[in-house]
Design a protein around this nucleic acid. Structure first.
Length: 491
RNA sequence: GGUCCGGUGGCCGAGCGGCUAGGCAGAGGUCUGCAAAACCUCCCACAGCGGUUCAAAUCCGCUCCGGACCUCCA
């Protein structure tokens, strides 16, 4: 393979060499969305980040089972809240069945994932389809003595668990600190022994629509439980990678570990990975403040905060220019910069097809490959890969200008560099490719450019400029080069 | 309040002890009927103040500023 892959593990707070538990198989679980609303672009960043990770592992030859759940049980705002859950609320608002809400926003989520060219996960389990397993797991934790029944609900006994385990190992929290932080927040938590305890099963009030039978009465599962149950069901009690957004680290992932260890006594996950947030004016995108974009708004430009529309691939490329563990600030200026840069790569790539191989080569393609692999192996450093690709673009332009030579072998290797890293690993794809490549467009453009060429040789520049300007209005750019005129879409 | 991150050139962002990040924007030049593109050159950044070191954007301390989590959240 291509060097050693190193991954930053949140659990150890260090970069660690990646060693699959059962090579060549890799199990990866990523927390998916709760489908009570449209996913916004911040949500998408996490899934794009893990898509790249998934793609790279596949590229390295691993057989990856990628599980990403859909949370279709409506959870409460917090454990003290006894009213409706989010899905039920939304259902009432839109006058739909809760399961219609689930379907509607699941569909929307899938569409958006497709827009961004994310690969589908291997398994996409839903919480409601795993209620039996969740009830079993709850019972198991009760049997082990780490949970208690209280008034029709079941709570995880955090302090009991912490006597023998390090609760807080992932997020770096200490029980005492957590206790002091929540001291003045005790209202409505009478059922719990301690404010730190979290629900495994929650009793449903009669008006609560989404509820199921259980040994403890009618209710619904706690939020953290589904991921514990579905990850171990499909990936085993111990698996390689668990991912999610930074904001899930505590309490969600911490509770998952606790549930797993309480149930099986084993440390469930070898590498915990967390993708950082997308910010807007330096602050996390959030629905409550109204500071966020929906993908649809981004693609249409329909928002006061946007100067124009951006294509899904321009947005994806924009995200590739930042490391997944850093926050990324969203701005028109930054997005436009990414859009232009991406376009430059695509144009160079298109021209790569016209370059002829020579007998000798003074383009060091091997070193470009090495740098790209080194970057990916260093905890998926995509911004570095992008820098390498821009260096490759420069080489292409020099080749085109006849200032460098390349052998046939290196030429196909150079093409492979882009196929591998830009398309297969970073998951970019061509846009408008169909239009540009259609025989009709090509034929028409050939005719038009031929006419323009005639005008030019007659020194009828008024005519040739008119043709160029008119095409410009149609978002087709014509450039005169030594080899004749070239054309491109948009800009 | 507690815990934890981060402050890099006009903008976005890598780097994290010595070696050019990169993109976008800007300036000059080459080329060109003119444009555009491309290429060349320039724009020598690391919040502030101390310290460690032969050497610090990179390590340590303090100060200032921003953010995340501690409740549902990607």
């Amino acid at each position: 393979m291509q060097g050693e892959l190193v991954i930053y593990n949140t659990l150890s707070r260090k970069k660690e060499e990646f060693k699959a538990i059962h090579p060549p198989f890799v199990g990866m679980y990523v927390c998916g969305p709760t489908v009570y609303n449209d996913v916004h672009i911040g949500n998408c960043r996490t899934f794009i980040s893990f898509d790249v990770i998934y793609r790279y592992l596949l590229h390295l030859g691993y057989k990856v089972r990628y599980v990403r759940n859909i949370t279709d049980v409506g959870h409460l705002e917090n454990d003290a809240d006894s009213g409706e859950d989010k899905i039920a609320k939304k259902a009432k608002l839109e006058n739909l069945e809760p399961m219609e809400i689930v379907q509607k926003y699941s569909n929307g989520f899938h569409d958006v994932m497709k827009d961004f060219n994310n690969l589908a996960p291997s398994i996409e389990p839903t919480a409601t389809a795993h209620l039996l397993e969740q009830i079993e797991c709850t019972q198991q934790i009760i049997d082990k003595g780490f949970a208690y029944v209280s008034n029709g609900s079941v709570y995880f006994d955090v302090q009991k668990f912490a006597e023998q385990n390090n609760y807080g190992e992932l997020s770096g929290r200490k029980i005492d600190e957590l206790l002091s932080a929540t001291r003045d927040n005790l209202d409505g938590q009478d059922d719990k022994k301690s404010p730190l305890d979290f629900a495994l099963w929650k009793q449903a009030s009669p008006e609560h629509i989404m509820q199921w039978n259980s040994p403890w009465g009618k209710g619904f599962p706690g939020w953290h439980l589904e991921c514990t149950v579905m990850s171990t069901k499909y990936l085993g009690e111990q698996f390689d990678i668990h991912g999610g957004g930074m904001d899930l680290k505590f309490p969600h992932h911490e509770c998952e570990i606790a549930q797993n260890k309480a149930a099986t006594g084993k440390e469930p996950v070898k590498y915990w990975m967390h993708a950082n947030m997308l910010t807007l004016n330096g602050e996390k995108m959030s629905k409550s403040t109204g500071k966020f974009f929906l993908p649809a708004q981004l693609f249409s430009g329909d928002s006061e905060l946007l100067d124009k529309a951006y294509s899904p691939m321009a947005v994806r490329f924009f995200m590739m220019q930042c490391h997944y563990r850093s926050t990324l600030d969203f701005s028109n200026e930054a997005l436009q910069a990414a859009e232009k840069g991406y376009k430059r790569i695509l144009i160079a790539l298109q021209q790569l097809g016209d370059i002829k191989g020579a007998s000798n080569s003074n383009v060091d393609v091997a070193s470009l490959f090495k740098r790209a692999y080194d970057a990916m192996n260093d905890d998926f450093n995509t911004p570095m890969v992008v820098a390498v690709l821009f260096d490759a673009v420069k080489e292409i332009n020099l080749l085109k200008a006849g200032e460098k030579n390349i052998s046939h072998e290196d030429l196909s290797a150079l093409k492979k560099l882009f196929d591998d890293f830009l398309f297969n690993i970073m998951g970019l794809k061509l846009e408008n490719a169909d239009d540009h490549d259609s025989a009709l467009s090509k034929g028409l453009m050939d005719v038009i450019l031929e006419l323009r060429k005639d005008a030019k040789s007659d020194k009828n520049y008024a005519m040739s400029d008119k043709i160029r300007d008119t095409l410009k209005d149609l978002k087709i750019t014509v450039k005169d080069t030594k080899e004749g005129a070239e054309w491109n879409y948009e800009g």
